[in-house]
Nucleic acid binder design. Structure first.
Lengths: 157, 157
DNA sequence: AATCATGTATCATTACAAGTTACATGATTC
DNA sequence: GAATCATGTAACTTGTAATGATACATGATT
């Protein structure tokens, strides 16, 4: 199974959006995320539907953050992505006639359930503002000033 | 990504093995698991290497449980399967130069880490004997007697 | 009217568990 | 010791879902 990297990718995109003084086009974001504009549109669609970002067409259009980072939890983003399948491990076919298979599946399912609960509660406890703080810490550790890295996409030559 | 169902499948197989009075061939197990003999051999190979089961060739050969179920934890089985990738979600590429991407990936990775910890500790707390008890409970709920369902594969016509 | 940017559909690519086939090797039976 | 049974293992195909890529319609701006 190939890995689903939409979650970290979207988090990354939001951090960049927060730093922009103007709208970012899908192409610009695609460059930052090392991917394709169509992928950006597809992935961000859910966030737009949930009101985390807005997108506008035409000249000077693009993606803009619609809420302060502190009001966006990672759990909200996960939901906005459609709560994608978390596990590569399955718990078998729930419609089994074999009672042993039922017992085996139930045990696996229960372990997955508690893990998923932990995952979701970890996501609920983190906001994008926490990530932004982490980013700034990383900047300062390198002796850089985050303010120097803000920019207006419309000023790109 | 396609789901990895080796875990529940192996648990299922072990419950059946426990109930057999003689060795079970890969073909017999494959029938019980609705799969293929080659898949059974491939999947059980790890369990054999870890000493949970033995396999013998030739007439009357097959798979036999090598330990009491109470000494087999689900965590041990997960390891024996090679600790397969648990998540369908990725946490991005760890080798990123972008500090925002690093922050995004780290947050995702941390949520996955705690979830994985919960998963593994849930698996450690369960033994195959617990599953066997669950199976017997399910039997009794249907008014059946588990003892009537033990059988010797060599007696199959 | 021309250009820019999103929205969306479609097809190709990739990764990996699982299904499948084939055959060598070793154990048992006669 | 030849036939048969069963595992061990390699090689190939299949199924599936995210991702990459391309194309085009639609709406906004200049």
């Amino acid at each position: 199974m190939r890995q689903d990297n939409r979650m970290p990718r979207v988090l990354h995109a939001l951090l960049h959006l927060d730093q922009m003084t103007g709208p970012a086009t899908s192409d610009l974001l695609a460059g930052m995320l090392n991917t394709n504009a169509a992928v950006v549109r597809r992935t961000m669609a859910g966030l737009r539907d949930q009101g985390f970002v807005t997108s506008t067409k035409g000249h000077g259009g693009g993606w803009v953050l619609a809420k302060p980072l502190s009001e966006i939890t990672l759990a909200g983003i996960y939901d906005a992505l459609g709560a994608p399948k978390l596990f590569a491990l399955g718990c078998g076919n729930e419609e089994s006639h074999c009672l042993m298979e039922q017992a085996a599946n139930a045990a696996t399912a229960e372990a997955l359930r508690v893990a998923s609960e932990t995952f979701l509660s970890a996501l609920s406890a983190i906001t994008m503002a926490d990530l932004a703080r982490d980013y700034e810490t990383r900047m300062k550790e390198l002796g850089l000033n985050p303010d120097d890295y803000r920019f207006d996409a419309s000023k790109i030559p």
